[in-house]
């Protein structure tokens, strides 16, 4: 990567800037011109629209294959309904106001549970990563709790907190907690000892040292942990909603399974995929700007 300012083609960043800082077009800056094409990694694949388009190829192929398989009668509709009937199911649910409600409540649970779990993971991970005493005290127990499969918590949480929002948020928070906790602990333990010593030599201690040196140095791995935690939150959401809920995408999945509505089941799965991908893309954007700032 070059440090030269302004109108360069960033290799990894994928944005080809053919204008200068004031937005005027730069003469002769054609990404396919010889000079730039010779730059390693600056082929058509370095361009965002191209990559976006390529990413849609497989879903499109799958959709077409799905349509062909169902239209040709190879698979019975009660096993795999056609894309059109799934669409119809979506429209039907939307008209009853259920689709929006399910998507909203599931997203809300994931976001809240993720925020709670990630904040706790950040706090506990910081303490365990920085204090040997806290590490010796907490690490074995947390490691054991981490080993408990998500579904194992459900009956207990329902018993303790009833079938309300609390039990679901707690389960999702547990799911979000561990990826953040483990990455924060590992990252803080691997912060460059030289930088920490320099920070101490310049009078930084405790929370100040954490804020000025240790956390910033850990930012790249912590962001990766947050991303993992968000994915885990969706995982735990479905675990929570499958068993005890009256709305949400997990409920839709369960309820449709009991009623034999394969179209709605597929709809729920597609929605989970889309929502998960969307939130991941959002956190990816945040990651990009954070890494620009801290890495």
């Amino acid at each position: 990567m070059t440090d030269a300012p302004a109108p360069v083609v960033t290799v990894a960043g994928s944005s080809v800037r053919a204008t200068d800082a004031r937005g005027r077009a730069l003469p002769g800056l054609n990404p396919f011109s010889l000079g730039l094409a010779a730059r390693p990694g600056a082929g058509p694949l370095a361009r965002r629209p191209v990559r976006l388009a390529l990413g849609l190829v497989v879903p499109a192929v799958l959709l077409v294959a799905w349509q062909l398989v169902t239209a040709s009668g190879l698979v019975a509709p009660y096993q795999l309904p056609s894309p059109a009937s799934v669409w119809t199911a979506a429209v039907d649910l939307a008209q009853r106001g259920l689709l929006g409600q399910y998507v909203a409540i599931s997203t809300q649970r994931v976001v809240l549970g993720f925020l709670i779990g990630a904040a706790l993971g950040l706090a506990v991970g910081s303490v365990v990563g920085l204090s040997r005493l806290a590490g010796a005290l907490l690490e074995p127990t947390l490691g054991a709790i981490r080993a408990v499969p998500s579904l194992a918590w459900v009956p207990l949480l329902i018993l303790w907190m009833k079938i309300g929002e609390e039990s679901k948020l707690t389960l999702i928070a547990i799911g979000a907690f561990f990826p953040v906790y483990t990455t924060v602990v590992a990252a803080l333990r691997h912060v460059d000892a030289h930088l920490v010593e320099a920070g101490r030599a310049y009078g930084l201690r405790g929370a100040r040292l954490l804020g000025a040196v240790q956390l910033p140095a850990a930012v790249p791995s912590v962001v990766a942990g947050l991303r993992l935690a968000l994915a885990q939150s969706w995982l735990f959401l479905v675990a929570a909603e499958l068993i005890a809920s009256s709305m949400g995408l997990g409920f839709l999945l369960m309820d449709s399974g009991n009623n034999g509505r394969v179209d709605r089941m597929i709809l729920a799965i597609v929605l989970l995929a889309l929502l998960g991908k969307t939130t991941d893309a959002l956190i990816g954007l945040a990651e990009k700007s954070l890494l620009r700032r801290w890495a």
């Binding site: 030289h194 320099a198 101490r200 030599a201 009078g203 801290w294």
Partner: peptide, 29 residues
């Protein structure tokens, strides 16, 4: 970590996420 002393290490040991000015500011009491 005596405050009456200041060390310049063998390596610059600057915080990579801070500008030079902000790194120097770290030394200001």
């Amino acid at each position: 970590y005596d405050a009456r002393t200041a060390v310049a290490f063998q390596e610059p040991r600057l915080l990579p996420w801070r500008t030079l000015a902000h790194n120097v500011a770290l030394g200001v009491p």
